[in-house]
Amino acid sequence: MNTEEILLKYKPDKENLIQILHEIQDLHPQQYLTETDLLKVAKYLNITRSFVYGVVGYYSMFSTTPRGKYIIRLCESPVCNMFNSKMIAEKLKEILKIDINQTTADGLFTLELSECLGLCGNKPSMMINRETYTELDENNIELIIKNLRNN
C-alpha cells in the first residue's frame, strides 16, 4: 500500500479527509504525515493546502513531525490524575529519557498525554498505539516498555 493507493480507495470528496489522513499516517513507520503526502491529499481532494494542514493541526492525533514506532498516550484526565498519573508520567520520562511530546533516539517511543480514554474504572491508564494498558504502577510500566523494546 502506498499513498496513491490509499487515495484511490476514496472518492475525491473532502468529507473523506480525516479517514485518509489516518490511513496515510498509520502507513508511515514513523507515524506522521509528510508535506509530500499532504500535498497529494490536497490535490486529490481538490482542496487547498491550509485546509488540510488546519485539520492536521487541530487534531492532536495527527503529527507533522516523525514519531516513534510506539506512541504512548498517557491519560491525564481528572480521575487518572487523582490516581497518580503524574507519577507515571515522570517514571515514563525517566525510563525513556525523553520529555512529553518527544521521541526516543532509537525512534521506538513517543510520549504523549491524552484526554480521557474512557478507562476510568481501571485507572490510571494509557494507550500504546491501539492497545490499552490499565492499572498502571511503577513496576508494570517498566515491564511494558521492556517487552516492547525486546519485540
Binding site: T48, R49, G54, G57
Partner: peptide, 21 residues
C-alpha cells in the same frame, strides 16, 4: 473564492495559516 487561509492549532493557541503554515 480562494479558500487559501485556514487556522491551525486549538483554543488560545490557534492562529491563521496559509499553505502548510
Amino acid at each position: 473564492g480562494k479558500n487559501v487561509l485556514s487556522f491551525n492549532d486549538r483554543g488560545m493557541g490557534s492562529y491563521i495559516i496559509a499553505g502548510f503554515d
